[in-house]
């Protein structure tokens, strides 16, 4: 019978907490940039201009056909060299910056698909009504379509955010320590890897389960 030794957890809590803060930093940045950029890409994808829509399609299909691990490795390769050319030495930890960029661009492709589906689910009659009132297509998109699409897509956007929160653990591959990384390193160092991994799993389970339950409640409130 395995002898559980939970003793290294209490002492590590401050560091685990810092790690969680870092996890949240990455998650929130990627959500905000991801949704903004994703909206632009979704709109471009639906544009009548075939060059723009093909570029947008290329972006989305490109990011969605390779593993997130590769995306992280790619940006950890590209970002330092690009940054050093543009602004010399950055103030921020280069791994963190690479993670920000990688996650934001990657998530944008997933958000773009969700938002595109949302936009297409709004009936064409709405566009016609807007145009008939004298608005141009930009205004109809901004004032009529997007607000409705977002309302409809909110549960899906939030679910994707929960997935993103879990995916941040992958920054392990570029040596960046967020919550999971700290848990692993602590366990490895103290010889209590089993306990720390179980602890990390439990924490994620509680957070994500609560978040998805809240999303489900929200979904029921929003649905007519």
């Amino acid at each position: 019978m395995y002898q559980f030794d939970w003793s290294s957890i209490p002492g590590a809590l401050p560091y685990l907490w810092q790690g969680m803060a870092r996890t949240l930093q990455i998650t929130v940045t990627a959500i905000i940039v991801g949704i903004l950029l994703g909206t632009v890409i979704a709109v471009l994808r639906l544009s009548k201009n075939s060059i723009l829509s093909s570029l947008a399609a290329l972006y989305v299909n490109g990011f969605r056909s390779i593993p997130l691990v590769m995306v992280l490795l790619w940006f950890y390769l590209l970002v330092p060299s690009v940054i050093s050319k543009i602004m010399g030495q950055p103030h921020m930890d280069i791994r963190l910056l690479s993670a920000f960029v990688a996650f934001s661009l990657f998530e944008a492709s997933y958000y773009a698909e969700i938002i595109r589906a949302g936009i297409q689910s709004i009936s064409k009659g709405q566009v016609s009504a807007g145009l008939a009132l004298g608005m141009n297509s930009g205004q109809t998109m901004r004032l009529i379509i997007l607000p409705q699409a977002f309302r409809r897509m909110t549960p899906l956007l939030l679910t994707q955010a929960v997935i993103l929160f879990q995916d941040t653990s992958l920054v392990y591959v570029i040596g960046l320590a967020e919550f999971f990384g700290v848990a692993y390193n602590t366990g490895n160092r103290d010889g209590t890897l089993v306990e720390l991994l179980l602890f990390a799993g439990a924490v994620y389970l509680v957070i994500c389960l609560s978040a998805s339950t809240l999303v489900r409640i929200l979904q029921r409130r929003l649905a007519p």
């Binding site: 879990q166 995916d167 991994l197 179980l198 994500c208 998805s212």
Partner: peptide, 20 residues
């Protein structure tokens, strides 16, 4: 299985399962 990150699950299989 949907609310624990994939990487954490992998480490649980590789490091925790053999010991427990």
């Amino acid at each position: 299985f949907r609310n624990i990150p994939l990487l954490v699950q992998l480490f649980l299989w590789y490091f925790v399962f053999p010991d427990i």
